[in-house]
């Protein structure tokens, strides 16, 4: 293994930060969900890197579970987006402040 594991940690740190910034600064709800996918992928890179470097397959099994949860999250999230669009014909996050007074 030529590449030290810290390179992978830094890479996943960069991708996670980009995803976090995307969640905070974008208005489109679809892009916000895509940014959440970015963050999940960053953790997956970390899991696989450590699993490979420690010679332990449990990390890869956890990536498998993270993938399951990501699929469930996408299904429910997109259903919510469609319901919101039906409700007010918009997917701009600024238009939904029902819980804010």
């Amino acid at each position: 293994m030529d590449v030290p594991v810290s390179y992978y940690v830094v890479l996943s740190g960069i991708v996670f930060s980009i995803g976090l910034v995307g969640v905070l600064i974008r208005r489109n709800i679809i892009i916000i969900l895509l940014s959440v996918e970015l963050m999940l992928n960053a953790t997956n890179i970390n899991f696989v890197a450590f699993s490979s470097y420690l010679g332990n397959l449990s990390g890869q099994v956890f990536v498998f579970f993270a993938l399951t949860v990501a699929a469930a999250e996408v299904a429910v999230g997109l259903a919510i987006i469609i319901a919101l669009y039906r409700h007010s014909a918009s997917i701009n996050i600024d238009d939904f402040r029902l819980l804010k007074w």
Partner: peptide, 15 residues
């Protein structure tokens, strides 16, 4: 619909 009003704050938090 592009960036949010809290652009600067979000970028700062990410950094």
């Amino acid at each position: 619909e592009h960036f949010h009003g809290q652009f600067i704050v979000g970028l700062f938090l990410g950094c």
